[in-house]
Write a protein that binds this DNA or RNA. Sequence first.
RNA 1: GUGGCUGUGGUGAAGUGGUUAACACGGCGGAUUGUGGCUCCGUUAUUCGAGGGUUCGAACCCCUUCAGUCACCCCA
Length: 421
Amino acid sequence: MLTTGPRGTKDILPATVGYWRYIENTAREICSLFNYQEIRTPIFEHTELFLRGIGETTDIVEKEMYTFTDRGERSITLRPENTAAVVRSFLENKIYADSQPTKLFYIGPMFRYDRPQAGRFRQFHQFGIEALSAKGPAIDAEIIILAVQFLEKLGLQELKLYLNSVGCPTCRPVYRERLQDYLRNNLSDFCGDCQSRFGRNPMRILDCKNSRCGQLSQGAPEMADCLCEDCKDHFEGLKQLLSAANIEFKLNPRLVRGLDYYTKTAFEIQYEPLGAQSAVCGGGRYDGLVAECGGTDTPGIGFAIGMERVLLALEKQSLLPTIDNKLAIFVVTLGEQAKPFAFKLLCELRRSGITADMDFMNRSLKAQMKLANKCMASYVAIIGDDEAAQNKVMVKNMASGEQELLDFAKALDKLNAEMGE
RNA sequence: GUGGCUGUGGUGAAGUGGUUAACACGGCGGAUUGUGGCUCCGUUAUUCGAGGGUUCGAACCCCUUCAGUCACCCCA
């Protein structure tokens, strides 16, 4: 073989595209219910957008981007996520000049140079939501409810919603310092990763999966205790709205998002049976991002759902719909004279909106019948040289086995009538 | 980026140094004249991920490499 698909990529074959369409359609339905409009941004952007938007010290930017120089000497990056691009589009197309808030969703491929693993690919697909300009907790609640409702509509059970507030530029630095003060004493006992996190992003230390680090940071101060009035009010408001809507959530003071732009609300929906990659949905508020990208100060909030992970979860729960592509009519031919005549019938059937097919491999009559059966054809139109000569078609009902010889026009009418129901 | 496991036909797999690489499913063809689903028969890998080495001899041993998979990490 010449070559294989690049590592971490997957072909979505006919046998599974149906599932993808099902998930995508469900996403679109929910979005329209909540009045979110679809947006499609390019798959690549100027590298700078992600450097500024996502944050230069994040893992995504430091080691996971597909970056290259194009023929015009521009640095280009395959999008590792879509929030920064949506914000860019919001500014570039002056969407902020329309009535606000801007409520958008997207579905499409993202690219991250990660080591492939269960539920993790280098090209993967996300369904995401972004709401710009609204700053109260109501929009946070709406978005979280949208995510939950989407996953529930697919039938997923045992989802866990984790909630936290990561503060804002007013209160986070205060917390950061307090946390560093707390950790500084026995910093040398933490794992190497955590030691390097200490200076750059100490909040991640709380999220470390290393059990020793977990123990050491046991009594660490929590963000919740350091929130400024504004952040505290926002968080309380959100919790009230979610409770009012009967959405169950768990507070997780150690929940930290991996992208720098998050402020205030951070949330994650987990589906534990998935194993190591159990985060199905992650999102939060990013009130500083639009300004960071050169716009006027505009709040925003969004989430992304990993489609591959949703698919895995549905598979695990046997929640995938059965999809069979039934064929209405299979046209069978016998003899050379019959072929053009049969082909004409095939074309007419399709023109009138009936799904029809025929053999293109020069198979015997018997083999063509087998094929028709495998295609689950409701009817078979048999045309031999005799029928062709008399302008007739033998129409066979595959379920009952009955067949009758009809004029071409009558056969067409009958099939139209039968299939019309 | 680090580590564990794995790599035989379209698929699932047997085979762990000796001449023709089991088996099952699938694919294709057929079982008297122009008819499917069941059954039966035939056929379907000069070759065991790739490259190199050891040996009289390798799918089986060694090395390298690539890929898959799971975990760390990170995240959707």
